[in-house]
Each structure stands twice: as structure tokens, then as C-alpha cells.
């Protein structure tokens, strides 16, 4: 049974189950406003995070290289980052509404990972054997996690009737929108450093810091989208709902950069596509 469901990766299965538990507890907890359930969800997410830490560390040791090479591996690491950033946000701002979303997105990612797993360790090609590899990937995935949360908060600010976003300045009017902004700022800061690290690394590896590769271009487009958000919210009449929409749309760009590359006609020769 376990074999049938989780194949070669029962440990990843356990991480997925814990995330599923966090989702099942925290979602009704948030909707019905049951504190104990919400709390249980948060602790389950923390447990999932710890187990995932172990799974990733073990894989790092077994493979003898950082486990960030393939789509499967990043689908383990993304939930790790989402859980880390979410738990930090919950601790700092008491934003327990984030837990079901964090758990939900992780369940989706992990389910896909289990459905299409790596059955053997993919070897690290020479270009990825670099001290820049880990900081570059970690910075980007932390950014993607924070930007996910900012997208979720922006969406909540848009749909929840009680958060008054209006077109008034964010800071004083809507707590959710303010949190969305904070998460976005943290995320786009990380995005900026990720881009920077990528450029410097490419310079050392190939001699070019930028080569207009499709993945690079989408990373640039995503960064520009968040820069547009920063300016949009300074314009009259744009600081409320419209700025929140900008965050939601920008996160769509993040998703495309991470997962959508293989849909592009130009990505065939790309060096960066997760396969």
C-alpha cells in the first residue's frame, strides 16, 4: 500500500502526509475560527518542516551534492521554504490564516513530486559545481516562498469583505494589505539578490553575466513586475486594490518562471529549465 502510493520515497510521502494534516486541521480552523484546530495545523506544519529538513539533509548526504538540481528536488525544497517563511510570519505577525495556504501549496507540490519522482540521483554537471549554486537557489526559493505569501495575502485583502482596502493608502487602512506589502518587499529584496548572485555566477562560469536566455528573461520580467508593483502603489488611486492586483499578477509571473519554461518555444536550448 505504502509502496503503491509513495514508491521509492516513503520519507517524502510522510512529509506530504504531515502537510496534508496541517491543511486538514488549519483550513477548518481558519474558516470556523476554531483556535485549537488552527493551532494544531500550525504545529503540524512545523512538524512537516522538521521532517522535510531531515529528508533534504539526508538526500544531500546520500547524493553527495546539494539536492536542488531537478524539478523533483525543488518540489521538496519549495515546501521547506514556504513552511519556513510562513512560520516566521506567523511568529512575527500572528498571521495564522497563512497556514492552510502554505500547507495546501506544499501538498500539491509534494503530490506531483511523488507522482513523477526521481528514481536515481541525477549527476551534477560541471556548471552547477560552484559555490554560487546553493546561495543562488536558496535566495530564489526563499523569495518565491515570500512572494507566494504576499500573493495569498493580497488575494485575501481583495476578496475578504471586512478588510477595507478601498483605494486608500495601504498602511493605515488594511492590515492584510500591509502584510502583503511587507511579504512582497522581503520577497523582492531576495529576488534582487538572487538575480545578482545568478549574474555573478554566470560570469565566473561562462564569462557572461547575462545571456538573454529564456529563464533569465523570465526572471528579469518577474523582477520588473515587482518593481512595477513598487511604483504602482505610489500612484494616486492605485495604492489599494489595484496594487493588490499587481501582487497577484506578479506572483503568476513567479509561477511561470519556476514551472512554465518548458511551454516556451524558445526554451529548448535553455540551460536553466528544470526537467
Amino acid at each position: 500500500m505504502i509502496e503503491e502510493l509513495f514508491g521509492a520515497h516513503p520519507d517524502v510521502g510522510a512529509v506530504a502526509v504531515l502537510h496534508g494534516g496541517a491543511l486538514l486541521a488549519s483550513a477548518p480552523g481558519a474558516v470556523l475560527r476554531k483556535r485549537t484546530l488552527a493551532r494544531a495545523g500550525m504545529w503540524l506544519l512545523a512538524a512537516a518542516f522538521l521532517l522535510n529538513t531531515w529528508v533534504i539533509a539526508a538526500r544531500w548526504v546520500d547524493a553527495g551534492r546539494p539536492p536542488f538540481k531537478t524539478l523533483f528536488e525543488t518540489l521538496l525544497f519549495y515546501p521547506w521554504c514556504v513552511a519556513a517563511v510562513t512560520l516566521a510570519f506567523v511568529a512575527l505577525h500572528r498571521l495564522q490564516v497563512l497556514v492552510p495556504f502554505a500547507a495546501g501549496v506544499s501538498v500539491i507540490g509534494l503530490a506531483y513530486a511523488l507522482w513523477r519522482p526521481d528514481v536515481e540521483f541525477v549527476k551534477l554537471p560541471p556548471a552547477l559545481q560552484s559555490g554560487w549554486f546553493v546561495p543562488h537557489v536558496v535566495t530564489y526559493f526563499v523569495a518565491y516562498a515570500a512572494l507566494f505569501l504576499s500573493g495569498v495575502l493580497a488575494l485575501l485583502a481583495l476578496v475578504l469583505p471586512r478588510s477595507r482596502c478601498g483605494t486608500a493608502p495601504l498602511d493605515r487602512e488594511s492590515a492584510l494589505a500591509t502584510h502583503a506589502h511587507h511579504a512582497a518587499v522581503f520577497g523582492l529584496g531576495a529576488l534582487t539578490f538572487g538575480l545578482f548572485l545568478g549574474g555573478v555566477w554566470a560570469k565566473y562560469a561562462w564569462g557572461d553575466w547575462w545571456s538573454w536566455d529564456p529563464k533569465e528573461n523570465w526572471a528579469l520580467a518577474t523582477w520588473l513586475a515587482y518593481m512595477i508593483y513598487l511604483h504602482v502603489r505610489l500612484m494616486d488611486g492605485w495604492s489599494g486594490r489595484r496594487a493588490m492586483w499587481a501582487l497577484v499578477v506578479s506572483f503568476a509571473a513567479v509561477v511561470f518562471t519556476y514551472l512554465g519554461m518548458s511551454l516556451l518555444p524558445t526554451a529548448e536550448g535553455s540551460l536553466h529549465v528544470y526537467r
Binding site: 528573461n217 523570465w218 520580467a221
Partner: peptide
């Protein structure tokens, strides 16, 4: 941004 995206859509 539009130009950057265009450059990934057109070969």
C-alpha cells in the same frame, strides 16, 4: 517587461 516576454515567445 512586455519586450522581455516577447523575446521569450518569439524564437
Amino acid at each position: 517587461l512586455a519586450m522581455t516576454v516577447l523575446g521569450t515567445v518569439v524564437l
